[in-house]
């Protein structure tokens, strides 16, 4: 665990603190390399590539778009609700959302 934290501080994008989870989705769903994935997300969100790793800017972008924040207290999107917003904004298919829609009769 200590090692994971050290890597995150030295080299990691920061996950939900920033746009790390969003960029990761492009690597998985479209096999994009890091530069291409960052540019895709930055263009969709209207921020620069460097700003993607800035928790100050990205926490505002995430809150504005309902992408999920680190301290999700009352009256903010959480979990699956956020994934709907992420899929729509980034024009992505998210596997569990498709399963959810099919099972809930929303597909």
């Amino acid at each position: 665990m200590g090692m994971a934290v050290a890597h995150a501080q030295a080299s990691g994008m920061g996950g939900m603190r920033t746009a790390g989870d969003l960029v990761a989705r492009l690597q998985l769903s479209k096999k994009m390399r890091i530069g291409q994935a960052k540019k895709y997300v930055a263009d969709k969100l209207g921020v620069s590539v460097v700003e993607l790793s800035d928790p100050i800017i990205m926490s505002e972008v995430r809150a504005d778009n309902g992408f999920g924040i680190m301290m999700p207290l009352g009256k903010v999107p959480k979990g699956l609700e956020c994934k709907f917003n992420i899929a729509r904004k980034l024009d992505l298919d998210i596997n569990c959302l498709n399963r959810f829609k099919a099972r809930a009769g929303l597909a």
Partner: peptide, 22 residues
């Protein structure tokens, strides 16, 4: 004691056996 990549060079982290490590 601690160094890091230049701003803008950050990368994605994946974790093998994450829940096992807890």
């Amino acid at each position: 004691r601690i160094v890091g990549v230049e701003m803008g060079n950050e990368v994605i982290l994946t974790y093998d056996a994450a829940t096992l490590k807890i």
